[in-house]
């Protein structure tokens, strides 16, 4: 179900918590699983539930509560743009508009070529560096002018 490398990473997370509280590692385990699979399919959640000795629906609760998990397949690159007030004041909504126009998709949609999913994010704790774009949850790009956004899209397309 998950690769040995993923399981090793999950085991490392489990080791952080008291032995009787393996469930504490569920968030990390789902992150690892999502890194490998791209999204959290039913079977993936079921596997994580078994691995951690949890009820599957309890895993589902966690996966659906935290909004960085993908409960359906996403594009190769998920771009998340913060639309909160401070970022908005600093141009992140313009940046979002620019991305929408460039990609031809709205928030929550994926480009036809399956390369990009555009997502509306909430505060990323990087307000002063707005506009901020998060790529696949893990890589943050800040001070994103339209020119920098174009460069980012070009770079990701080339990869």
């Amino acid at each position: 179900m998950l690769s040995p490398e993923s399981l090793r990473r999950i085991d490392r997370e489990i080791a952080k918590y008291p032995a009787e509280h393996k469930q504490s590692a569920v968030m990390a385990a789902l992150i690892v699983a999502q890194d490998e699979k791209g999204w959290l399919a039913t079977e993936t959640m079921d596997f994580v539930a078994q691995y951690l000795g949890m009820a599957p629906v309890a895993v589902y609760e966690v996966a659906s509560f935290y909004n960085m998990y993908n409960l359906e397949p996403a594009g190769q690159y998920k771009l998340t743009v913060c639309t909160c007030l401070p970022c908005g004041l600093q141009g992140s909504l313009d940046a979002a508009d620019h991305l929408k126009a460039r990609l031809g998709v709205d928030f929550g949609e994926t480009t036809a070529d399956g390369r990009f999913t555009l997502k509306e994010g909430e505060c990323m704790g990087a307000c002063a560096m707005a506009p901020v774009v998060l790529v696949n949850n893990k890589k943050m790009h800040d001070y994103m002018s339209n020119a920098k956004l174009d460069a980012l899209l070009d770079e990701l397309r080339k990869r």
Partner: peptide, 22 residues
């Protein structure tokens, strides 16, 4: 003794479900 229903999502979107397909 068995959690078969849960409340998924959050806020206004919260809803009671069984695990997918169960």
């Amino acid at each position: 003794g068995v959690m078969e229903l849960g409340m998924i999502h959050r806020g206004e979107h919260a809803e009671i479900v069984a695990f997918v397909g169960r």
